[in-house]
């Protein structure tokens, strides 16, 4: 299992080397498009009429989504590498075990990413209809719940051990 973890990290590093450039470039482009869309063009369109606001929001939503979809495969590699570094720094030091620490940090980073993505999509979804935003929020909360459940299932023996000691 240790070997598979090492192999996974090796694969993630190779992925970072090969696809990191494309992933980060797409992320930067997505960030630029998001900033100009939310801070400049959507307020401008809103000052004209609601139809233009929705149309401009749809345009930015699609452009942003295309760029985000391009980053997703690379993002997995980045999460793996970051989880490895965090597990090495904090998890193993706390006596969690390398595998468990890696899994915990991977899940936690997935939760952070999903919340960040929701935060980025929120202005677009809210401008379409509040209900669309609500559905997205429910999906994110359900995903977060299941990921947190996995994290707690890994941490619970350690937590019980700590309770028994105290």
């Amino acid at each position: 299992m240790m070997v598979s973890n090492k192999e996974e990290i090796k694969r993630a590093i190779e992925y970072l080397r090969l696809h990191g450039q494309k992933t980060l470039t797409s992320m930067l482009a997505a960030l630029l498009v998001w900033l100009f869309g939310i801070l400049v063009f959507i307020p401008l369109a809103d000052s004209l009429n609601w139809q233009t606001r929705v149309l401009v929001s749809v345009l930015f939503f699609f452009a942003f989504s295309v760029l985000i979809v391009q980053t997703l495969p690379g993002l997995k590699g980045l999460i793996d590498v970051s989880a490895y570094l965090l597990a090495r720094r904090y998890g193993v030091a706390k006596g969690l075990g390398r595998e468990n620490a890696l899994a915990v940090f991977k899940h936690l980073l997935c939760i952070v990413c999903s919340l960040v993505f929701y935060g980025l999509y929120f202005p677009f979804l809210a401008s379409f209809h509040p209900a669309v935003n609500g559905i997205a929020l429910i999906v994110v909360l359900v995903l977060t719940f299941f990921l947190l459940l996995k994290v707690f299932s890994i941490l619970s023996p350690k937590f019980l051990e700590w309770l028994a000691k105290s």
Binding site: A29, L32, V33, F41, L44, T52, L55, V56, L59, L67
Partner: peptide, 21 residues
């Protein structure tokens, strides 16, 4: 102005993408 804004939006998305590239 709405049509012009939409054209500017499409152009600026490509311009920003080129900037990032």
């Amino acid at each position: 102005p709405a049509i012009l804004l939409i054209l500017i939006v499409v152009w600026s998305i490509f311009a920003l993408w080129r900037s990032a590239r």
